[in-house]
Each structure stands twice: as structure tokens, then as C-alpha cells.
């Protein structure tokens, strides 16, 4: 479908021969290109319209994202109540705990997540804890633990006795006293 250069040349001569008519002819011969351009323009227009409709309203509020996403993420329910909530109702525990070795251990570190209990203390009861299982989570011997952190080989250390026989969890030093 190549077109001979000679033809091309002669075509141009013809075009130049009569001014307006040639321009009109040239437009006619390129008409299909305008049709394509029209199809593309329609596509582009449709894109602009659809885009305007579909982009979420809050997009770009703070940056290139949905601004409302921040609030949606912040709306996730809380599962750990936080020790401040615990202490509002149980002030007697920090009174003992804060004087002992476990002062910086928060309530839910041992008792587990209790937002549900904080919300409805009457019906949701915290689970009873088993010191034999609980204490070793932190205090079992491991070569990678920082030196000076109290760690024991449980079998050897207690001979099967529950930890709270000697150590009271809220103030674990033997003889330190306090509520179990």
C-alpha cells in the first residue's frame, strides 16, 4: 500500500492549482480522521465526566487519599481498656503494685484485654489466672533475656508449686505483702 513519491508530488501540484477548492478537497479526504478524533474526544469527555462523579468527595482533603479514611480507621473499637480505666474502679491494686517490682507492668499485660469488662463490669468477668502458666511467660530462663532480669527454670525453681505460693503477683518480692 505504499504510495509512489511521484504521485505524492503530482498531488501537491494539483492542490496548489486552485486555492479554496483544494483546501475543501483536502478536508474531505481527511474527514475520516476528524471522525476518529471525534470518537477519541467523546471517550475523553466520558472519562472526565465519570471521573468527576466517581472520585470520593473527601479525596485530597489532606493529601492524595480519602480524608474520611482517617476517621474510619480511628473508629475501630478498642479491645484493651488501658490501665487508667482499670484503676478508676480498682484503686486498691495500684496502691500495692506501684510500690513493688511490678509497678510498670500494666493490668492487661497479665489479665488480658478487658475493654468489654470495663464497659460492662457486671456481666463480663475477667478470666481467673493460673500463675503456673502466666509467670513463666516472662520469667522462664532464656539466654537472650537481658542480664539482671529475674528468670528461672520453673521445674527446678519451684518443684511444681504454684508461683503464688511464695510470690504475690501484684508485689512479687517474697514477704513484700499485698493483695494476691
Amino acid at each position: 500500500m505504499t504510495i509512489e513519491p511521484a504521485q505524492e508530488g503530482s498531488g501537491r501540484v494539483e492542490d496548489r492549482a486552485d486555492g479554496d477548492g483544494a483546501a475543501m478537497n483536502r478536508f474531505k479526504d481527511a474527514e475520516h480522521l476528524f471522525r476518529v478524533a471525534l470518537v477519541f474526544a467523546a471517550g475523553a469527555l466520558a472519562f472526565v465526566v465519570v471521573r468527576a462523579i466517581l472520585v470520593p468527595k473527601s479525596f485530597g482533603e489532606y493529601g492524595h487519599y480519602r480524608g474520611t479514611a482517617i476517621a474510619e480507621i480511628a473508629a475501630q473499637p478498642v479491645v484493651f481498656a488501658g490501665h487508667e480505666s482499670c484503676e478508676t474502679c480498682h484503686p486498691e491494686v495500684p496502691a500495692v503494685k506501684n510500690k513493688g517490682k511490678h509497678a510498670k507492668v500494666n493490668c492487661e499485660a497479665c489479665h488480658g484485654a478487658l475493654a468489654k469488662h470495663a464497659e460492662d463490669p457486671g456481666t463480663v468477668e475477667p478470666a481467673k489466672l493460673e500463675t503456673a502458666v502466666l509467670c513463666v511467660k516472662c520469667h522462664s530462663k532464656n539466654g537472650a533475656k537481658p542480664e539482671g532480669f529475674p528468670q528461672v527454670d520453673a521445674k527446678e525453681h519451684s518443684a511444681g508449686l504454684a508461683c503464688d505460693t511464695c510470690h504475690k503477683p501484684h508485689s512479687p518480692v517474697i514477704g513484700a505483702g499485698g493483695k494476691p
Binding site: V78, V79, F80, G82, K104, V105, N106, E108, A109, C110
Partner: peptide, 10 residues
């Protein structure tokens, strides 16, 4: 509140 990991870290 603080994060859950911080809250639970003994």
C-alpha cells in the same frame, strides 16, 4: 490511650 503493644509490654 497508648498502643496495645505498649499497654501489654511488661
Amino acid at each position: 490511650l497508648t498502643t496495645a503493644c505498649c499497654e501489654a509490654c511488661p
